[in-house]
Design a protein around this nucleic acid. Structure first.
Length: 208
DNA sequence: ATCCCGGATA
DNA sequence: TATCCCGGAT
C-alpha cells in the first residue's frame, strides 16, 4: 500500500483549515513559521478578540500593538512586520478575491515576492487558502521521506516539490490531506528522535 | 551560520 | 533545564 493510503488509514482524515476564510489561513501560515500551532491559535484569537482581524485593521495598527497581540506565536516583532507587509500586499493587489482569480503560477510568484513569505508559506497559502494543487514541502516531509529512503532530504525545495507533484495526481484535496498526514505522522512517530515502535510505515523504512 | 522568540513537552 | 515547533531573512 502506498505511503499516503497507509497514513490515511492509520490517522484518518485530518480536516485541515476547514471552513475558514482565505485571509485567516494566510495569517495563520505566516504566524506558524517555525512555531507550534497552538501558539498560533492564541495569537489569532487575540486578534479576533481585539476586533482587528482584517487587512485594513492590521495595517492601521501601530507595530507595537500588533506585536503585543501576536506575542504567543513567538518572533512577534518579525511577524508583526511580516503581517503588515502581507496586508499591504493584499491592498495593493485589490484584495483576496482578485488573488483567487489568478493562475497558480502567477499567484505563487506574487506571494513569493512578499518579504516574509518563503516557499513553504506561499505553498501553504496556495493549497489551504486557494485550494491549488501545490505540494507543500516542510522539514517533516524531508525527514519522513528521507528515512523511508525515497529522497535524500537535502534537495532544494523546488526539486522536492516537483518530485512529489509529478509523482501524484494534481489534486488539491489529495495534497491537502497528504501534507496534514505528514505533519501528524511526524509528531506521532517520525520525530527527530524517532519512536519506531508501532510505526505504521516501519516495514518501508530504512531505520532499524 | 545566526538571529528572531514564546509556549508546550520531556 | 533543554529541545522543538506546520521558516525566512540577513
Amino acid at each position: 500500500m502506498a505511503v499516503f493510503q497507509t497514513m490515511l488509514k492509520t490517522y484518518g482524515s485530518q480536516g485541515w483549515w476547514p471552513g475558514e476564510t482565505a485571509f485567516e489561513v494566510m495569517v495563520g501560515a505566516i504566524l506558524t513559521q517555525n512555531t507550534a500551532w497552538p501558539n498560533v491559535e492564541k495569537a489569532i484569537s487575540n486578534l479576533k478578540r481585539a476586533g482587528v482581524f482584517s487587512a485594513v485593521s492590521l495595517l492601521d495598527m501601530p507595530h507595537e500593538a500588533l506585536a503585543k497581540l501576536i506575542r504567543p506565536s513567538g518572533y512577534f516583532n518579525i511577524k508583526a512586520d511580516r503581517l503588515q507587509q502581507f496586508c499591504h500586499f493584499l491592498q495593493e493587489q485589490g484584495g483576496v478575491e482578485i488573488l483567487g482569480n489568478m493562475e497558480t503560477t502567477r499567484l505563487r510568484k506574487l506571494l513569493l515576492g512578499v518579504k516574509g513569505v518563503g516557499p513553504e508559506t506561499a505553498d501553504d497559502m496556495l493549497l489551504y487558502a486557494f485550494q491549488r494543487p501545490v505540494f507543500v514541502i516542510d522539514a517533516y516531509t524531508r525527514r519522513i521521506f528521507s528515512r523511508l529512503g525515497m529522497v535524500s532530504g537535502d534537495e532544494s525545495y523546488e526539486v522536492l516539490r516537483m518530485g512529489f507533484e509529478s509523482a501524484l495526481e494534481a489534486d488539491a484535496v489529495l495534497f491537502n490531506e497528504y501534507h496534514a498526514l505528514i505533519v501528524r505522522h511526524a509528531k506521532a512517530f517520525c520525530s527527530k528522535k524517532p519512536k519506531c515502535a508501532g510505526c505504521p510505515l516501519a516495514a518501508r523504512c530504512t531505520i532499524p
